[in-house]
Amino acid sequence: MSEVSPAKAYALHLGVIALLFVLSFVLPDYHHGLLARIMVLAVFAMGYNMLFGYVGLLSLGHAMFFAAGLYGAGLSVIHLGWNVPAAFAAGIACGALLALVIGLLALRTTGVAFMIVTMMFAQVFYLIILYFAVWTGGDQGMVVPQPARVLVLGAASFDLTNPTVRYMMALTLFSIVLLVTLAVVRSRYGRVLVAIRENEERTKMLGYDTFSNKLGAVVLSGTICAASGAAYALLFGYVGSSFASVQYSILPLLWVLLGGGATTLGPLLGTLFMYYVIDITSGYTSAYLLIVGVALILLVLFSPKGILGTIRQRWLGWLP
C-alpha cells in the first residue's frame, strides 16, 4: 500500500516461490501431488481475495468463475480437440466474459444483497451444467483424455500427467498470479480498491467512478479464478459439476479468511492449512465438512484477520 520497502516485499515473495520450487525435489510423492493441487487452488483463493480482501465485496458465487475456467478449458479439449494453450486461453476467456456480465448485474447491489445475487447466479450456472449433461457430463463430470494433456512448445513437449511437470506448471501459474497480485495491490489501482472497501462514498467524492473500478476488480478476480479452474482441468484431467456447487463458493472464502484477507500470501497459507486439516481429519471421520464449519466459526470469533492479517497487525506492518 504505502510506498515503503518494495524490495523487502518482492524479496519475500520471490523467497516463497523459491521455497516451493525446492520443495518439489524433497517432498515425498503424496505431499508433492497434494501441494501441486494446493497451488492451483491457492490461485482460486488469490482471485477471490482480490475482490473480497481488497475491495471488500463478499461473493458467494465464485465457484461459477472457477467452473467457467474448468469447463471452458476441459470441454474445448474434449469436444473441439483444442490443444493445451488454446484450451487454457478459452477457459480464461470464459471466466473473464462471465465475470464482466455478472459484475454488470450484481454490482447494482451491495452487502447482503450482493452475496445473495452472486449465489443465485452461481446456482443458475450449476443447474445449467447439470441440464446440458450431454455436453458437460452432468453430475458425473468428464475426464479430459490423457493423450490430449500434452503441452507442446516448439520442439519441447511436456506431459501434464507427469507429476513433476504438473508441479512445475502449477508453480508457474501460482508465481505469475502471486506477482501480478502483488503488483496490483501496490499500484495506484490497488490503492483505489482499498479506498472503496474502506469508504465508498468518500472515494466517489474524490472523483473516482467506483462502479467501474469495482467492475474491473470483479473481472480481474473472475479471470484469476478461471485461470485456476482451467489449470485444474488440464493438470488433473477432470471436469465435474461439484466444482460449480455452492461448496466451492464457500471454500475460497474460508481459505482467505483463514490465511488473512487483503494479504498477498494469505490465500496460499489458508489453502495449505485447510487442505491439511481436511486431509488429516478425513482420515478419522467422514464428517469433515462439520470441521470446516467449526473452523469458520472459530475463525470469525477469534481471529477475524486470519493468520497473516494477525501477523501483520502485531509484528510485520510492512507485509503487503
Binding site: S2, R188, R191, A195, E198, T203, Y208
Partner: peptide
C-alpha cells in the same frame, strides 16, 4: 470522513494520483 485505517499519506495520495 477520512479513511481511518489508511495512513495520512494514502488518504492524500488518492486525490493526488487522480489529478
Amino acid at each position: 470522513s477520512v479513511f481511518a485505517n489508511l495512513s495520512a499519506y494514502d488518504n492524500v495520495a488518492l486525490p493526488v494520483q487522480r489529478t
